[in-house]
Design a protein around this nucleic acid. Structure first.
Lengths: 225, 225
DNA sequence: CGACGCGTTGATATGGCTCAAGAGTGGTGG
DNA sequence: CCACCACTCTTGAGCCATATCAACGCGTCG
């Protein structure tokens, strides 16, 4: 889910007016820090991110946290299992969402095009999670961070002269909990990439990719450091 | 996917004769070591495991491997994304499969009950993968192995006197690649659990859970060792 | 019988964690 | 506009859990 290149925000925006039938497409906005849903809540709604960024997390009893995914425009969140949500979900920045009913995904009765769109989003989610497994289980800290930056930049990067720039709306702790690291290690690894002149950092949460090829090589584990 | 308690093998067996319409339910068998599909293959078929055990893996260029899931009876494998498989899949033991067409999942045209069953399997898969994230990203080696044994036993364990027994058709290397560890660490951790009299081991691939409560406590991270 | 694959165990190395101290950064109120 | 405070980020030092490298036993198969 978090970084597939299909179905952009524009796509979502387009499909709204294209569907004037009963126009059941409802929209809502959520502010940073507010929860969209919690683990264990009844999963009545499925949400497509139209703008903003969501954070999906799971928390263990002792406080250990795993960020499952970041939800960017075009992503769909809130897939139910046994009728319940299985993660917490809150917003990192003000976020607008298109709401769907659970039945829009689970039964083909209503709008078939919508049904299939949600279904394909679920399948893409499975594929994205499989990528993430390799990252969590088998990559070093620098490979993890490089992969993260590559994927995020491909998804929401902006050209900046010869380079590519990407804004990180999440904290170092969020990145750490996404990659299975500590904030200290994430910070040190950013510094390492910065000192190698592979990236540059503006204002902590803006990264400029100076050497995309080198970064990609690190992400794929090209036996360097 | 790998260890949800729903949809057992009996369920599959039941639904076969229950559907006498056109009886398009085809079955096949795959032998150990044989591949059902490879990453990048066109995903024309979706498979339900009727008996046996499958192994889903992804491999990096340098040989690092991640076991994404083990496919036990009742599990569904081969969910497509962009029309392709995104893992390799082979059999650990002789395995029989019920085959479905990709269109059975992706379009609601055909058998609606089958369509929904595959869809719900995909949603359960997402939920199971979210559990696995916490395991890979945030648990220690002993917590990982304890969780693995708990889940596997709940799924395919057999009562044995006062205890519960579970057979491991996969190698230590498979377990290691599933949990994001090395074979040596898996072996040492088995030894540690055995020396604590929490488990006993028969013939390398048969584990008896002597203290399920202690094992569960370790899996959840109850601040002991 | 030999060889190979798998599992176990030991010794050592090391990557990332923990603990701790500062340096930015942003927000708030006087 | 500045002072203060809370929070995040960075950096350092040391340690520990797990990886790595290596040896060996055991069972299986040709």
């Amino acid at each position: 889910m978090y970084v597939t290149a299909a179905m952009t925000a524009e796509h979502v925006a387009e499909t709204l007016p294209t569907k004037p039938s009963i126009a059941r497409q409802r929209t809502m906005t959520i502010r940073p820090g507010k929860h969209l849903f919690l683990e264990g809540d009844p999963a009545d709604r499925i949400y497509e991110v139209a703008s903003g960024v969501l954070r999906l997390t799971r928390i263990m009893e002792d406080g250990r946290r795993q960020v499952i995914a970041f939800g960017y425009p075009g992503d769909t969140v809130g897939f139910p299992s046994d009728g319940l949500y299985h993660t917490d979900c809150d917003a990192l920045v003000p976020t607008t969402l298109v709401m769907h009913r659970r039945s829009d995904l689970e039964t083909a009765k209503g709008d078939p095009a919508l049904h299939q769109r949600l279904l394909l989003a679920a399948l893409r989610e499975i594929s994205a999670m499989q990528d993430h497994f390799m990252m969590l289980g088998r990559k070093s800290s620098i490979e993890k961070l490089a992969s993260f930056l590559i994927v995020l930049t491909a998804r929401v990067g902006n050209p900046l002269g010869d380079f590519e720039q990407v804004t990180l709306p999440m904290t170092r702790a969020d990145i750490a909990d996404f990659l299975g690291l500590t904030t200290e290690t994430v910070s040190r690894t950013f510094t390492q990439l910065r000192k190698s002149n592979i990236i540059a950092i503006d204002h902590v949460n803006t990264v400029i990719i100076l050497k995309p090829i080198a970064l990609r090589a690190i992400a794929e584990g090209d036996e360097d450091n």
